[in-house]
Nucleic acid binder design. Structure first.
Length: 543
DNA sequence: CTGGGGATGGGGCCC
DNA sequence: GGGGCCCCATCCCCA
């Protein structure tokens, strides 16, 4: 593989996000590494700033770099008093933050909605609104007309006068024109009166919710949404560059080249997707990813555009089901009800369309003929799979062993096994040279070597060329590697699991083969990667 | 372990 | 909003 072409390979780990969240939730429950305590009604909720900043626009602003949260705020634990959010609602919102699932009694829906709006947890607010339906809308309209309001309610709706535009049914019908129905008001008009009044997390160990309340999610929604070209980054960039107050600024972003097209980056895409297109829901991660990918594909490829249809939440699994009339269909997956029975063989199905396809077995109908051979198929996707055999294309390649597959699910099955990992993770190296795959450090290195170009693994300067998919992961890996290299042995000791062998080596456990210092180890990594690359090149030449 | 067919569930579009 | 139809991703099973 030539250096210029040794493509940057990204290996997605779909379960990673779920596992990460699960571990963070464990940490929250045990109080481990908690650096923020939220209080409400006398109850304390230890949590993590990073998580809260990730899930809540309010905390994102509060802990943003301008507020010192990035560096200075990392010092000690702080307390944030949120008496305006009821304890139950706060509990539910925290649960949501750490599990991606919102579990609340219907009676508490309104409190959660208010809390979500206050804290800028837009997807929860939207989900609550969707569930509460017109009631909330009507109430809020009444509130805006000057009705008597409580403090919390004022905080919710007090500065959102214009936001009542849209989001609801009438707009959803227009959602294909997304981004236009919000534009009528300037983002500046939406700013809190005094956004800089947020106290710094670094300076306050005890605080109440700032007097300037976080804008409701709708307010954030009313940031200019994807402009005429549908690219939200144009708006965001303008916002950042224009020096808007921090409430309108999102997280720091890794510099990217200007968009070559209207295609949305993954995260931007998801935000635009959430905020504007589908009204955002508490999607499980995998679903969200799929949704983002689908939206990206739709936007980029001119394929199907996501039509906004009222999402409905399954009361059993809390899953958000998109599409009108799809919830009963989904519910049958829980009830096991199979109302559609084949008149020929008695087999029952949960869905009519599946029964229809099944009937083709009896009728002999195979409506999908292969144009290249006499084969005919029951399903279009069977034909699609079959056609890949004729074309000989194997577009799905294992990034580890480079074996190619015609079908994506076969690649997934292949990667779920261990064969390709065993192939990849090292041939014997000398008489002492057995790589211990169980070693986390080397596992990480082996893992990284599959992702990272040599320049990155060497700790050399950044890659060339435009960032590709998974660049963010690569940069994170690079940062981690550089951090590892700079850690001294004493610091390494703070990471007993990951650096177990590093400690063993420093204690002389394996004095023969390996050198002692992290820097030397990094050099050795580089050597191994280089050797690895040489071996791959040789193998390819032999082929 | 891989190739292939079939089943299942979700989402988009349309009526 | 409900439902039909279609496409898609994923999973399961068998050879």
């Amino acid at each position: 593989m030539s250096p210029g072409e040794d493509g940057l390979i990204g290996i997605p780990f779909p379960e990673h996000s779920n596992e990460l969240l699960s571990h963070l939730n464990d940490q929250r429950r045990t109080g481990l590494l908690c650096d923020l305590t939220l209080t409400s009604g006398g109850a304390c909720y230890p949590t993590h700033r990073s998580v809260m900043a990730a899930v809540s626009l309010y905390f994102r602003r509060l802990f943003g770099p301008e507020e010192g949260g990035g560096v200075g705020g990392a010092g000690g634990s702080s307390v944030c008093q949120l008496d305006c959010v009821s304890p139950d609602a706060l509990d539910a919102l925290l649960e949501f933050a750490y599990t991606a699932t919102l579990t609340i009694p219907s009676s508490g829906m309104r409190d959660v909605l208010r809390g979500a709006q206050l804290l800028g947890i837009q997807c929860v607010a939207d989900a609550c609104r969707d569930i509460l339906g017109e009631t909330v809308e009507a109430e809020e309209e009444a509130e805006q007309q000057g009705g008597q309001r409580g403090v919390a309610e004022r905080m919710v709706s007090g500065d959102v006068g214009v936001e009542k535009l849209s989001r609801r049914k009438t707009d959803r019908k227009k959602v294909k024109k997304v981004g236009q129905h919000h534009i009528s008001c300037s983002p500046l008009s939406l700013l809190p009166a005094s956004p800089v009044s947020h106290p710094s997390p670094a300076s306050d160990s005890l605080r109440s919710l700032p007097s300037t309340q976080p804008p409701s999610p709708e307010q954030d929604e009313l940031r200019p949404q994807p402009g005429q070209n549908g690219d939200p980054r144009a708006v965001r960039g303008a916002t950042l560059n224009g020096g808007h107050p921090h409430w309108l600024q999102d997280r720091p972003r890794i510099a990217r080249p200007p968009p070559a097209s209207d295609k949305l980056s993954e995260d931007d895409d998801m935000e635009a997707f959430d905020g504007a297109v589908m009204g955002n829901t508490s999607l499980p991660t995998s679903m969200a990813d799929r949704g983002a990918a689908a939206a990206a594909a739709a936007v980029a490829g001119g394929g199907r555009k996501r039509k906004s249809q009222t999402p409905q939440q399954c009361p059993v699994c809390q899953k958000i089901i998109h599409g009108a009339g799809k919830l009963p269909r989904h519910m049958r997956t829980h009830t096991g009800e199979k109302p559609f029975q084949c008149s020929a063989c008695g087999v029952r199905f949960t869905r009519n369309d599946k029964l229809k396809i099944h009937m083709r077995k009896h009728t002999g109908e195979r409506p999908y003929p292969c144009p290249h051979c006499p084969a005919r198929f029951l399903h279009s996707y069977d034909l699609k799979n079959h056609l890949s055999l004729h074309s000989g294309t194997r577009p799905f390649e294992c990034p580890l062993c480079h074996k190619a597959f015609a079908r994506e699910d076969h690649l997934q099955r292949h990667r779920k096994g261990h064969s390709c990992l065993e192939l990849r993770t090292r041939r014997p190296r000398g008489e002492t040279g057995r790589r211990e795959q169980s070693d986390p450090l080397e596992a990480f290195q082996a893992h990284s070597s599959a992702f990272l170009p040599r320049s990155v693994l060497d700790g050399g300067g950044g890659g060339s060329g435009p960032p590709l998919m998974f660049d963010l992961e690569r940069e994170r890996s690079l940062a981690l590697q550089q951090a590892l290299a700079q850690l001294g042995p004493q610091r390494l000791a703070a990471y007993p699991e990951l650096f177990l062998r590093g400690l063993r080596e420093s204690e002389g456990d394996d004095p023969g083969r390996r050198s002692q210092s992290p820097a030397a180890q990094r050099d050795r990594w580089g050597d191994e990667v280089e050797e690895d690359n040489r071996e791959e090149e040789e193998a390819e030449e032999e082929e």
